[in-house]
Amino acid sequence: MSEQDYMISMQDVNKWYGDFHVLKDVNLNIKKGEKVVICGPSGSGKSTTIRCLNHLEKFQEGKININGTDLIEDVKVVRHIRSQVGMVFQHFNLFPHLSVLENLLLAPTWVHKKPRHEAIKTAMMYLERVKIADQAHKYPNQLSGGQQQRVAIARCLCINPEIMLFDEPTSALDPEMVSEVLDVMVELADEGITMICVTHEMGFAKKVADRVIFMDAGQIIEENEPHEFFDNPQSDRLKLFLEQILSH
């Protein structure tokens, strides 16, 4: 397959923070509709990797192609790519001065220039889908963490993205709220959207991932389909990592 056939293609991507080499020759090709989970210890470059995909981080070497468009430093290209890539953050990053509904309307009305009434209709549909339509007129700080993260997911869906990136979406949640967010993500996965998720929720990885990737020290160490990945790890580093996170 050539790079044009992939939804996401990263070739030999290298990134430095000053002199610190954070991403080392990262190669990653993801097909349309594929679900990929990335895990690894903190500081391994997994968040940086997915943040490069919508240009929240710049990279110095290598090539990234998103749905047929090369990611270059050009305002129009970056905007075009961001209009196809939704990103869900660890700390939700909802806009606290706007109601839930207004949070969802921003991108459709200002970036995609949709008429307001149409945008409201779409927004309410997605709020319905994440089971939170009754909270549309509340402010983010009046909601629980799990509800806020579901709003954040709906906010991404409103731009009708081809790709969804999840950056540790459940790490900041109380244990009781993790499952309500994961349920929404599983539903999304079933609908066939292309998805990259940085997470340590191994149950989620087993359930929805087509592929699990293990990163350490800025490089991809091992990748495999989930059952092999967890039951039959090859590298010592991954064995140690799995032991650490599964031992309690």
Binding site: H55, R79, R82, M87, F95
Partner: peptide
């Protein structure tokens, strides 16, 4: 203003 607010706004495609 937390950095996340800038990032969320950028990632939604706002200029």
């Amino acid at each position: 203003i937390p950095k996340g607010q800038y990032e969320a706004s950028e990632s939604l495609g706002l200029s």
